[in-house]
């Protein structure tokens, strides 16, 4: 857990007030026609919310449970000229930058409100807490490391990398090399163990596509996994197709995955999707010397070719 993750609900409360004011201003001045944020859902957990009037902007929330990456919703607004407002923390800004670097949404049509992040909690885990413990976490900031979102454990970009205005002070960053302990464990397995591991891993997947649909790196106009002609992915939930789904998904985001862990978080049956994502990131570091493979860059390691590429060496 990075030291910077001193969960600070008080700071978030202040940011929430500033966010509401900022969004209301943008909407009333006509700078944006819609503002992408979160509101409180039915059971108290935040849900994605798109405010269209200054009045609605009052419903925006900013608290330790705003886990959802909002950038993906920009794909619902590709047509039109309207300018869109959006709030991002660190990882939210990586998701946004992913779409920008993939040229899936024009920067000119965005107004980005950034909020430096002191960590987020896993909504499911918080909801399961007894009332007192929940309050202590949400209001007092008293949270065990296990309550944080998994991604907070490896986050090295708590300050927004894209923003037109930043609310609140910068938080300290610790950019060390990324760790992939689970991948190391799997790499230590014998080939037979590994084969068995991967065979059972995707068995329980119900192929709901939530992992793909939530992913900011999955933004193709038409996904090959949806195509009927040719039918790349068969409709049967049999082992070969399960592997096909998971390998294509992982390889298509290789080099562009921002390590937000949203795919794994939204999976209702608990498929550990980050195992493959992390393996590919670790490989990119080892083969191409890219220290922060999850951070969108202007020139991506897998988006170029040089004579000195390590994978060429490895292939010989």
């Amino acid at each position: 857990m990075p030291k910077s993750l001193a969960l600070d609900p008080k700071k978030m409360k202040e940011a929430e007030a500033a966010l509401r004011t900022q969004a209301a201003k943008l909407l009333s001045e006509g700078t944006v026609t819609v503002f992408l944020g979160h509101e409180e859902g039915w059971d108290g957990l935040p849900v994605p919310f798109f405010a269209t009037t200054p009045e609605e902007a009052k419903r925006l929330v900013w608290n330790p449970l705003v886990a959802f990456n909002l950038a993906k919703y920009l794909l619902d607004r590709l047509t039109g000229e309207e300018k869109v407002g959006i709030v991002v923390n660190g990882c939210g800004s990586l998701a946004l930058d992913r779409l920008l670097k993939d040229r899936r949404f024009p920067r000119e049509r965005l107004f980005v409100v950034g909020i430096p992040c002191t960590g987020l909690l896993d909504p499911d885990k918080v909801l399961a807490l007894p009332d007192e413990a929940r309050q202590a976490a949400l209001e007092g900031g008293k949270a065990e490391p296990g309550l944080f979102l998994k991604r907070c454990g490896w986050c090295d970009a708590p300050n927004p990398v894209v923003a037109d205005v930043v609310l609140g002070e910068k938080v300290p960053e610790e950019a060390g090399p990324q760790q992939y302990p689970r991948v190391e464990e799997i790499e230590k397995m014998s080939p037979a163990e590994r084969a068995a591991h991967f065979k059972t891993l995707y068995e329980k997947c119900i192929r709901c596509f939530a992992c793909r649909n939530v992913c900011p790196a999955c933004s193709c106009r038409e996904c090959s996994l949806d195509q009927w002609e040719p039918l790349w992915l068969g409709k049967a939930t049999v082992p070969s197709e399960q592997l096909m789904y998971h390998f294509i998904r992982a390889f298509d985001v290789a080099g562009r995955c921002i390590r937000c862990g949203e795919c794994e978080r939204v999976c209702s049956v608990g498929v550990p999707l980050m195992e493959l994502n992390d393996k590919l990131m670790k490989d990119i570091t080892e083969l191409f010397g890219v220290q922060r493979p999850h951070v969108p860059a202007d020139v991506e390691p897998l988006g170029q070719w040089t004579e000195g590429d390590a994978d060429l060496e490895a292939a010989h």
Partner: peptide
Amino acid sequence: SRCLSCAT
């Protein structure tokens, strides 16, 4: 508007 169009 917030639906992910998944099958969950």
